[in-house]
Simulated assay, not measured.
Amino acid sequence: MFRTRLVRLLRVLLPLAALALLSVLFLLGRKSETVEPAIPYAEGSAEDLGRSPGIGAPEYTTVTPEGASVTLRAARAALGNGGGDSGTASALVLDWRARDGLMIELTAPRAETQDTSIRLDGGVRMALSSGWEMRGPSFEADTAADTLRADETVQVTAPFGQLEAGRMLIRPSDAGAGQVLELNEGVRLLYRP
């Protein structure tokens, strides 16, 4: 009789003890991971943020008439003084992906938008997927005309050497296949064999 009671008691206690032991192991075995808060908080003082209304981490995406996908991301953006279709932004990345596969990435400290034009300035770096890299004081992307241009001197690093040009334009080719890079106004080339 004692033995029967002991077996019945152990049938209940042993599974409960195993369950408790496994629960403790799972709870202690988890790493304490820091999870970012679900709502991002604005950085800076409340006075500064209240004085200059704007949007934190905005993203703008469009498609040009020739089929290029254009995405503009910024750390902060604000409407222009006149409101409407103009505004300014800071710490920008502009991704331009042409239909033929050419990818262009522009990074700049600031930008200004007006209708279909995005002007990046403050020292802009442009990297092309073909291996070319350009630097200049300002670049302008026109999504309606499907062009990227620089009207001031640009320093170009190409796979074959260094170039300097007074103006630069990337536009769709007239034949409709691919993009054309035009460098003009006093182009200088330092060829590296």
Score class of each variant (00 low, 15 high):
residue 5 R to P: 03
residue 6 L to K: 07
residue 10 L to R: 06
residue 19 L to T: 09
residue 23 S to N: 10
residue 24 V to T: 12
residue 28 L to A: 13
residue 29 G to F: 03
residue 33 E to G: 00
residue 34 T to M: 07
residue 35 V to A: 09
residue 35 V to S: 07
residue 36 E to I: 08
residue 42 A to M: 08
residue 44 G to L: 03
residue 46 A to F: 07
residue 49 L to R: 15
residue 50 G to A: 15
residue 53 P to H: 07
residue 57 A to D: 10
residue 58 P to W: 00
residue 63 V to M: 07
residue 65 P to N: 02
residue 68 A to S: 12
residue 70 V to H: 01
residue 77 A to M: 06
residue 80 G to V: 06
residue 81 N to M: 14
residue 90 S to H: 06
residue 93 V to F: 12
residue 93 V to M: 11
residue 94 L to D: 02
residue 94 L to I: 03
residue 95 D to G: 05
residue 97 R to G: 05
residue 98 A to G: 06
residue 100 D to F: 01
residue 100 D to T: 09
residue 101 G to N: 02
residue 105 E to S: 13
residue 108 A to K: 01
residue 109 P to L: 06
residue 114 Q to A: 11
residue 115 D to F: 08
residue 117 S to P: 02
residue 119 R to Y: 08
residue 122 G to P: 07
residue 124 V to T: 03
residue 127 A to Y: 12
residue 129 S to L: 07
residue 131 G to V: 04
residue 134 M to E: 08
residue 135 R to Q: 15
residue 136 G to L: 04
residue 136 G to F: 04
residue 137 P to M: 13
residue 139 F to K: 04
residue 139 F to Q: 01
residue 141 A to R: 01
residue 142 D to M: 04
residue 142 D to P: 07
residue 146 D to M: 03
residue 149 R to S: 08
residue 150 A to D: 00
residue 154 V to N: 03
residue 155 Q to D: 14
residue 156 V to G: 04
residue 157 T to C: 03
residue 158 A to H: 11
residue 159 P to I: 03
residue 161 G to R: 04
residue 161 G to V: 06
residue 162 Q to T: 10
residue 163 L to A: 07
residue 166 G to L: 03
residue 169 L to H: 03
residue 170 I to T: 02
residue 172 P to K: 06
residue 172 P to L: 00
residue 177 A to L: 14
residue 179 Q to F: 04
residue 182 E to Y: 10
residue 182 E to T: 12
residue 185 E to W: 09
residue 190 L to N: 10
